[in-house]
Design a protein around this nucleic acid. Structure first.
Length: 491
RNA sequence: GGCGCUAUCGUCUAGGGGUCCAGGACGGGUGGUUCUCAGCCAUCAAACCGGGGUUCGAAUCCCCGUAGCGCUACCA
């Protein structure tokens, strides 16, 4: 039997982390098994489904690199892949179930149902549909069908039985069918409900394995009963756990960025996101942490998916991301940093490849995310980077700092060549001439040139800024020091 | 409330009866290294939810409890 899996999101928002991980696990399982990864859009809830969400889901999956083999935009032999376009199919199945007496029309209105539910609750009973429409005779059904609003179609629950399955991640899971009720298959507006459409499509699309979040585990007995009623072999199920926020609650907007595209905006690489998501609930051996998508495709095993809910940890995400950033080829890294900066308000049009490469090299391993480039590289990106108060205060307290900055401006401004070596030689020779450590001239220079106490290597900083800006910033700082420092010689 | 799922360091996890006084990673502490930072190296602290069983022996199996989460819709 060929492996066919599906990722079946409902387009009611962005591709969130939980969905992304579910998609990833489906994709990896399909690739590892040489199977087919199907994308199906579950847009039966016309109220909440939007075209923008559909696009956001496509975008998120593409960004992660999870190409689907069948589905919207790529087609396939089991389409259409939007549930909203499969109405006739659902109708046919509904018809079949009705003829088999496994489904019946229900004329109860939502208000009536609500009222009865309230009464049951008040009596301390579990709210379950009382099946009053199931007892209607054919004549009564025909009569009521001509008057009033159209009925919904309910599933006629079979006699009490155990409904169980062997879940790949959880082992055997079992329910008693009595806890269920005659749930709705087709709403009065003619649209199928989730459980019905899902089963029909999984049958029609020949899905072999259903990999999804464990919020669906209590839907599984309903779906299993439907597969049985249809005489279809159910797929194998694998329920991965939820992703929780730091507070242990199910991840939601309250926890900040939760859509994959938002993480892209934050400067997370798709490679980092994929790696991190894979690790959230799955481990190869408990030791190996870094994987590319391609590597995951080789080693992923559903059996190794962990059933406990995982708490999303931004720190670890950033660490994983940093590792992938480091592993990028230099040209690739330069390209991505530049693209990120250009997309986020920094104009690099005037900088050539040599400068861009030097810039990224200077930033070195200081980046955990692409966004860090804007911060760490602010000294070069901004015309006048902000001066940190603490850094300046310390500089003011440094004896002779003003003089040294001026002297450095002169030396550096006068180098014949603008190279890292020349810059270093000029700086060190000044320190030697003054009989002080190189660090004592570098520290003030760093503050003058970057506005901070911590920055990339000082010679790289100088080179990137260029002679004009270096001299100007050094002299500006020197002048300000003379004006503000109590240590400055007053004339 | 009912039903279900889950339960190892703060976090992600390894571990499927002895080799575990529980291993790895993130984060944190300390020391080293370079002009600072980052990085790198070394090093430290940090966990088997509680209680009963089963067994010669349990983190590993069973039961109960507790906690967290999920579902309980003509949402998905």
């Amino acid at each position: 039997m060929s492996v066919r899996v599906r990722f079946a999101p409902s387009p009611t928002g962005h591709l969130h982390l939980g969905g992304a991980r579910t998609a990833l696990y489906n994709y990896l399982f399909a690739r590892a098994q040489g199977g087919t990864f199907v994308l199906r859009i579950e847009d039966t809830d016309a109220e909440r489904s939007t075209e923008a969400s559909v696009q956001a889901i496509f975008g998120g999956l593409r960004w992660l690199g999870l190409a689907w083999d069948e589905g919207p935009t790529v087609g396939g032999s089991h389409g259409p892949y939007f549930q909203s376009q499969r109405r006739t199919l659902y109708n046919a199945y509904a018809q079949r179930l009705t003829e088999m007496n496994r489904a019946y029309p229900c004329f109860c209105t939502p208000e009536e149902l609500e009222g009865r539910r309230g009464e049951q609750l008040a009596r301390g009973e579990d709210p379950r549909y009382d099946r009053r429409c199931r007892a209607l005779s054919a004549a009564e059904r025909a009569a009521r069908a001509t008057q009033g609003p159209p009925p919904a179609l309910r599933f006629a629950l079979p006699e009490p039985q155990e409904v169980a399955w062997d879940d790949i991640v959880r082992g055997r899971v079992s329910f008693q069918s009595e806890v269920l009720d005659d749930f709705v298959l087709v709403r009065s507006d003619g649209l199928p409900t989730y459980n019905f459409a899902c089963v029909v499509d999984d049958v029609e699309m020949a899905i072999s394995h259903v990999i999804r979040g464990d919020d669906h585990i209590s839907n599984t007995p309903r779906q299993l009963l439907l597969f049985r009623a249809l005489g279809a072999v159910p797929p194998v199920f694998a329920h991965a756990s939820m992703i929780l926020g730091p507070d242990g609650k199910r991840l939601s907007k309250r926890h900040g960025a939760t859509s994959v595209e938002a993480f892209g905006e934050l400067g997370i690489l798709p490679e980092g996101m994929v790696n991190f998501l894979a690790l959230l609930g799955w481990a190869l051996d408990g030791k190996t942490e870094l994987f590319t998508l391609g590597e995951l495709e080789q080693v992923f095993k559903l059996e190794r998916v962990n059933p406990n809910p995982a708490v999303f940890d931004t720190q670890k995400l950033e660490w994983v991301n940093a590792q992938h950033l480091k592993r990028l080829d230099e040209s690739d890294r330069v390209q991505r940093v530049a693209a990120y900066l250009e997309a986020h308000g920094h104009d690099l049009a005037g900088r050539d490849d040599a400068w861009r490469t030097a810039f990224v090299r200077a930033l070195g391993d200081r980046l955990r995310t692409l966004a860090d480039a804007a911060d760490v590289g602010a000294f070069a990106l901004l015309d006048s980077p902000p001066m940190e108060v603490e850094a300046w205060t310390e500089l003011l307290a440094k004896p002779a700092a003003g003089e040294r900055l001026s002297a450095l401006a002169q030396r550096v401004g006068g180098t014949t060549e603008w190279t890292l070596d020349a810059l270093e030689a000029a700086t060190r020779s000044l320190a030697a001439a003054d009989g002080i450590k190189a660090g004592d001239v570098i520290a003030p220079a760093r503050v003058a040139l970057t506005g901070r106490k911590a920055a990339p290597g000082i010679f790289e900083v100088m080179w990137l800024l260029g002679r004009g800006r270096v001299v100007a910033r050094l002299e500006a700082a020197a002048a300000r020091w003379r004006a503000e420092s109590p240590l400055a010689a007053r004339v």
